[in-house]
Simulated assay, not measured.
Amino acid sequence: MINDESKKRKYYQALVNRDSTFDGIFFAAIKTTGVFCHATCPARKPNYENCLFFETAEEALLAGFRPCKRCKPLSFPQGQSPLVQKMVALVEENPEKRWKDSDFSELGVHAATARRQFKKNYNMTFVQYARARRMGIAMKSIRTGEKIINTQIELGYTSSSGFHDAFSKIMGRTPNMSKKMITLYASWIDTPLGPMVSIVDENFLYLLEFADRRGLEREIERLRNRLNASIIPGTTDRSNQIESELNHYFDKGLTLFKTPIMLLGSDFQKSVWKQLLTIRTGETATYKDIAGLIGNPKAVRAIGNANGANQLAIIVPCHRVIQSDGTLGGYGGGVERKKWLLTHEKTAAQCLLK
């Protein structure tokens, strides 16, 4: 998601003016309607505060937005191959479908050909697109918190089974209560760095991630399998608590989160995450530092993997771990977010010292 204020203003003006030179440069997502559009979309223009801007269609899909039916943003660039048009249409007809090579054979298409043509148009493979679309269905439900039947109708399913299948691809259940599973609640949190998703029960926070993070589907799958859990849109005191604390963090530089958390991972991963919790706001540590602190100086690469498996963004501050040469290194939420968080926290820490 684009966070630069001047760029967002520029893109919003292009959206208002329907400036065709910006088609394919950005995608505008409309929070009030749940769709994303091209700059030239003929629909009535939303207010600035209701817009998010993305550089790629995949980012918009993963954040829970669907392609606008009026401007059809996935039909750009013009003159795309009939194969790509057909593939986009097939996903929209059946977004819960998990595509396999055999599915392409039935269409008389080689999987590699489909992958190459889709990648050329959208900078993502067809499988990536289909996965992002599935994820968007779950995110839409979480973001709006609407009743299941309302979501089903809005998504255009003519029968309940289609929506149930799509939802359960992500959340691991059909939207009916199950006595054999525990229930977790997923809610949507808007932040200056883009929307986040929290997953909680009545007592603990289990997951907090940016909605457009690649791999979020796998994280949710690991969580629900480990706990034998069903996940439904909803809130508890814990989700309200973490939303309030995040607002305080972004607005006033909160340095200590008090929301009870549950760390789910291997003993090694937990040892790494507990060390991350000791890194003070405004400070950083290297992967090598963390390896030494847990008594395993050769585990630098494993430290990086444990960071990547962290499911509690910001709360367990893996963004405070950098390379030994001072470069930022990777971050699941994106390097630009990592840079922003470190700068924000450094400023907050300096204010506390005054």
Rank of each mutant, 00 (worst) to 15 (best):
I142W: 11
P67Q: 10
I290T: 01
V84W: 02
C37S: 10
A285R: 12
L83S: 05
T174F: 02
P82T: 15
L90P: 03
F26H: 08
A291P: 11
Q152S: 08
Q80N: 03
V35Q: 10
A43G: 05
N305S: 10
F257Y: 10
L205T: 14
K97E: 02
Q13N: 15
R66K: 07
G265S: 03
L264H: 02
R173Y: 01
E55Y: 02
L184W: 01
K119H: 06
Y249F: 13
T113V: 13
G234Q: 09
R66V: 10
Y331D: 08
L341E: 12
L227T: 05
N247V: 01
G156A: 09
V335G: 06
G292H: 14
G253Q: 12
V91N: 09
K72A: 10
A43F: 07
G308Q: 04
L341S: 15
Q269K: 08
S159R: 12
Y331P: 10
F257S: 14
G215A: 05
C68E: 04
S105E: 15
A14M: 15
K338N: 04
K147C: 12
M196K: 05
R337F: 08
V300S: 03
A309E: 14
L208R: 07
V316K: 00
E345W: 07
T33P: 08
M177E: 12
A349Q: 10
S75W: 03
V16Y: 09
I315M: 08
L74W: 06
D289H: 03
S75L: 13
I199D: 00
R70L: 03
S75K: 03
I314Y: 00
E106S: 13
L342C: 04
S102M: 09
F167T: 00
K31M: 09
I294K: 01
C37I: 05
T21S: 07
S102H: 05
R222I: 09
T347E: 14
I153D: 05
K69E: 07
K97W: 02
I232H: 15
L90V: 02
P73C: 04
R173L: 08
D251P: 00
E58A: 04
G64W: 09
R222T: 13
F118D: 02
R66Q: 13
M196D: 01
R44N: 15
R218W: 00
A309F: 10
Q152E: 15
W188Y: 15
K339P: 01
Y287V: 11
L52Q: 02
N225S: 14
R98T: 08
E154Q: 11
G172E: 13
S6I: 14
N121S: 12
K274E: 12
D325P: 08
I170D: 00
R173A: 05
S160R: 12
V316Q: 06
L328T: 09
K180S: 11
A57P: 00
I142M: 09
L254N: 06
T343M: 14
